[in-house]
């Protein structure tokens, strides 16, 4: 990434992260700084190897102090000297949950979204599920362009009709069938109950027992530990 090349040694930015004074490389985004200090910030459209895009808004943080605070997408926001940043304020948590609720309503079948729902303790989805298979995070498009140098897929349409496609909606000559787009897609991996699940929110997040464990005798999520699956009954409100 070009940002690393412009980095100058020794020169650091000091700012307040959740009330603690911290230092960061001036080329970092708030998200990179927070990750460096070990904080878990949920993200969906961000990937270390790709240009940040700032569309999922899950990485929101509250910046500023007193009454003059605002929410920003931390993956796109630079670290600034003296900035006051909060990564887990009530406003941030409420907003993140709302965004995730909307995303899950769009793609209830995605395992990544469902696991994130357990992690953020999302308890209900009040919107009508759309059962779509894409949240328009743009990871596949950037992956194809920036890492695979293929530029085989992109966006078409606008607004609510926007979708990911190949040129002219036809099999694309540019595509090398490398599969990188599917590998990075947060909506491609389906949750244990598959696409036909009866509930919008994975029941694993509401029950004390992992549904997958009941079905397969083993919990199936090894990549991201599913918090709801290890919850004790008394933890569930």
């Amino acid at each position: 990434m070009s940002r690393n090349i412009t980095r100058q040694k020794g020169e650091m930015v000091t700012f307040m992260l959740n009330g603690a004074q911290v230092q960061a490389d001036p080329n970092w985004s708030l998200l990179e700084a927070a990750k460096f200090y070990g904080l878990y910030i949920p993200t969906l459209c961000y990937d270390e190897g790709l240009t940040p895009y700032g569309v999922c808004r899950l990485c929101v943080m509250e910046v500023g102090s007193g009454d003059r605070t605002k929410l920003v997408a931390s993956c796109m926001h630079p670290v600034i000297e003296g900035l006051e940043v909060r990564t887990h304020s009530n406003r941030v948590i409420k907003t993140r949950k709302m965004i995730l609720e909307l995303l899950i309503a769009r793609c209830p079948g995605s395992k990544k979204l469902q696991d994130m729902a357990s992690m953020l303790e999302l308890k209900e989805v009040r919107f009508k599920p759309l059962n779509d298979d894409c949240i328009l995070c743009g990871l596949c498009v950037r992956m194809c362009e920036e890492q695979m140098m293929a530029k085989a897929i992109g966006y078409a349409g606008r607004g609510t009709d926007r979708y990911i496609t190949t040129p002219f909606d036809m099999t694309s000559e540019e595509c090398r069938k490398c599969g990188a787009c599917m590998y990075i897609c947060p909506a491609c991996e389906l949750r244990c109950q598959g696409p036909e699940a009866k509930t919008t929110l994975c029941s694993g997040c509401l029950n004390t027992e992992a549904v997958c464990a009941a079905k397969y005798d083993d919990a199936m999520c090894f990549m991201v530990p599913c918090l709801s699956c290890v919850k004790r009954p008394e933890d569930v409100k």
Binding site: E145, K151, A152, I153, G154, Y155, A156, G157, R158, T165, T166, P167, F168, S172, E174
Partner: peptide, 14 residues
């Protein structure tokens, strides 16, 4: 320009 980008612009505007 990548074909998909031209297609994207052509479908973006009504």
């Amino acid at each position: 320009i990548p074909r998909v980008q031209v297609f994207g612009v052509a479908t973006f505007f009504k």
